[in-house]
Amino acid sequence: MLQPLVVGLGRSGSGLHLRALARLARRTAAMGDPLVALPAVGCDPRAEALRAAGAPGEITTLTTLEQALAMVEPATTVAHVCTPPRLRHEVIARLAGHGVRRLVVEKPLAASAEELDALIRLREQADLDMVVVAHWTSSRLADRLRRLVRGERLGPLRRITVDQHKPRFLRSLTTEGHPTALDVEIPHSLGLALDLAGPADLRDARCWDLRCEDRTLPRLGGAHVELEHRSGVTTVLRSDLGAPVRQRSVVCEFERSTATAHFPLSEDDDHAQLVVAGECDAGHHVFRDDALTAFFEGAYRDFASGTANAGNFPLACATARLLCAAREHCAVVAPTPAGSR
């Protein structure tokens, strides 16, 4: 079995990674094929994170990475790096120096092109097996979209429109892990668009401010990104973090039909929906899609078999580079008026 080490116990580390790892550990153990060794080891210097992290028996919490590394065996450890992007290179370098080679890194991979290049060099020099969290692309729903794109029954893919909207006032007001709205939801949809339609160039990007009572948070209200794929497909990604309702939908417009994919909105429900309208394959399909747990299972099985070295790293790098280009574009243009999509 492999031992999880979760570095950073905020929303991603504690609320998502640990919960999915616990589900995976219980399920694989019940099947007689245990994959994840619990309790996981976690580290975070923040007192509030210590109170929030994990159920009894699921995690041993420490305040420093040195303490955590002293409790794990590098040869059987999978490190989950859930720190803000600007801290990633330092943390991964320390893990590699201790002999940890298997890593699951939260998105986005890096906060700048320079940091991304440094991380690529570190991965190569230290011979790291590194996968980047991308559970949208590993979901059952994404697999159905890929089959529609490749099957050509609906005609060629022409356009992708993604809407990722949710109210995110409290977290934006109380945390500093995401400098702009481009870093919150857009990495999920950007990676999926590249997976479905291939390499792309940035055509436009803009952010707007988040306004709440007497406070304004620059560029955290939402983001709009436009891509031109080399396959001829155009993509529009929209994320409103001041929206009154939640939405996670992907509309794929084909020559002869339209497919609308609805991703689960939160951990409260793990069902996805796919609605196909038009001349071919019309229908409304509802199915379970616990994508994050499935993503971790695939990563851990690849780690255990020694086949994870390539993983999804090239796609994650392409996603990060486009995000960097979008950040640079937004940094030199005036913010869009609040609520613009």
Rank of each mutant, 00 (worst) to 15 (best):
Y300H: 09
S266D: 04
D163Y: 06
G278V: 03
D183M: 05
R168T: 07
D129R: 13
D44N: 12
V333W: 10
G278N: 07
V251C: 11
H89L: 15
V275G: 02
H178R: 04
R153N: 05
N312M: 13
C330K: 11
H165G: 01
D195A: 12
E115F: 07
L9N: 08
R150Q: 15
T336A: 15
L170K: 13
A261Y: 00
V105N: 04
A338I: 05
R102W: 02
V72Q: 08
T216D: 14
R158E: 15
L141T: 07
S257M: 05
E152K: 13
A223Q: 12
D281R: 11
A193D: 05
S14A: 15
A96T: 07
C324Y: 00
A200F: 00
C330Q: 01
D143S: 13
M1I: 11
R321I: 12
A93V: 09
A40D: 11
G15E: 07
T175L: 07
K107L: 11
V149P: 08
G298Q: 15
Q3D: 12
R26Q: 15
R301F: 05
I186V: 09
C212L: 13
G15L: 13
V184M: 02
V36W: 12
A25E: 01
L109N: 03
R288E: 13
R230L: 14
S305Y: 00
Q125D: 13
D183G: 03
P187L: 01
T234W: 04
T83C: 13
A126I: 12
V250L: 08
L50H: 15
P39G: 01
R23Y: 04
H262I: 00
M1D: 08
V250G: 04
L122Q: 14
C317F: 03
L95M: 04
E226D: 09
R94E: 05
L69V: 07
L109M: 03
A334T: 13
R144I: 00
H178I: 00
V162P: 04
H284L: 10
A96R: 10
T293K: 08
R94D: 08
T336I: 08
R123T: 08
E297F: 06
L119K: 10
D270L: 14
A320Q: 00
H329D: 05
G57I: 07
L116P: 06
G13C: 06
L217H: 12
A110W: 04
L202T: 03
R11F: 04
D33V: 14
C330V: 11
A308T: 06
A223F: 04
G15R: 06
G13D: 02
A20H: 11
C82F: 02
P45Q: 02
L241A: 10
R88S: 09
L315I: 09
E255W: 00
A261N: 11
K107A: 10
A308F: 03
Q247L: 14
L227C: 07
L148K: 01
F303S: 05
V91I: 14
E48L: 10
V333A: 15
G42R: 02
L217C: 06
V162Y: 01
S231T: 14
G10R: 08
K107G: 13
G242W: 01
A37Y: 02
